[in-house]
């Protein structure tokens, strides 16, 4: 314990302050969340298409995926996927005769959170696609648009206003769920805070600072999503 340091010295960005560690942690929290979110959108788009247009076994498989992910506690999912994923890859590598590797913690975190996000995103996007008047999509097909062009020009712009509120919620939850990665030992904001607090014994100060950082991330994202929604709803009646 170093009783001589003041609050500001403790939070200073350079050692002996721990501010730098916290900020680096916050940056990696945002990066993990961003990676997982993008992966989730990718899985979500595929999943929503599969659920709407896929054959029966595909729909059944996707149903199991979304139901399971939404029924099992996040902590258990994250820990289970983390161990099963890293363990599985290494077993696969030894099976084909390659030396086992140390899985990058960042990549593992992104994959695990992305798989969780993907399940929720599938449902959000499926609902948003279903909310598009079918005539609009049929009109696009009647014009002879190919699926990709139809998606880009008609489905995507019509889907965004419906999907954005749900997607905003998911972004908020991934930034907070990323704190669970601390439990499997990758150093993001939550674990960095625990490290700083444990070293200085100023537990309250550091956890409070971390809470403020998370709150700042949330409030900034709120602003961003409000702006995005205004952009995608341009030209629509205001009352809706």
């Amino acid at each position: 314990m170093s009783p001589s340091l003041s609050i500001w010295e403790l939070l200073a960005p350079t050692p002996p302050g721990w501010g730098g560690v916290l900020l680096t942690g916050a940056v990696s929290t945002v990066l993990i969340s961003l990676g997982a979110y993008l992966l989730g959108i990718g899985i979500g788009l595929l999943g929503a298409t599969g659920k709407l247009k896929g054959s029966r076994p595909v729909v059944a498989l996707l149903d199991i995926y979304t139901t399971a992910v939404r029924a099992i506690p996040e902590l258990i999912l994250i820990i289970g996927l983390y161990y099963a994923g890293t363990d599985g890859i290494n077993r696969l590598l030894t099976a084909i005769g390659l030396p086992s590797i140390e899985i990058n913690g960042f990549l593992a975190a992104v994959m695990v959170l992305g798989i969780v996000q993907g399940a929720y995103m599938t449902e959000v996007l499926r609902g948003a696609i279903l909310a598009i008047p079918i005539g609009q999509i049929e009109a696009a097909s009647a014009f002879g648009m190919r699926p990709w062009l139809r998606f880009r020009r008609v489905v995507l712009p019509a889907l965004m206003p419906n999907a954005l509120p749900g997607m905003a919620n998911l972004w908020m939850s991934v930034t907070k769920d990323s704190a669970l990665i601390a439990v499997v030992g990758y150093q993001e904001l939550a674990l960095a805070t625990r490290l700083a607090a444990g070293n200085t014994k100023h537990y309250f100060l550091f956890f409070f600072a971390a809470a403020l950082l998370y709150l700042a991330i949330t409030l900034l994202s709120n602003l961003l999503f409000t702006g995005l929604e205004r952009h995608f709803r341009r030209g629509q009646p205001v009352s809706a």
Binding site: A190, A197, A211
Partner: peptide
């Protein structure tokens, strides 16, 4: 803020 941080703020802080 994440529940984990709130929990640790209470327990440790």
């Amino acid at each position: 803020t994440p529940l984990l941080i709130q929990l640790w703020l209470f327990y440790y802080g």
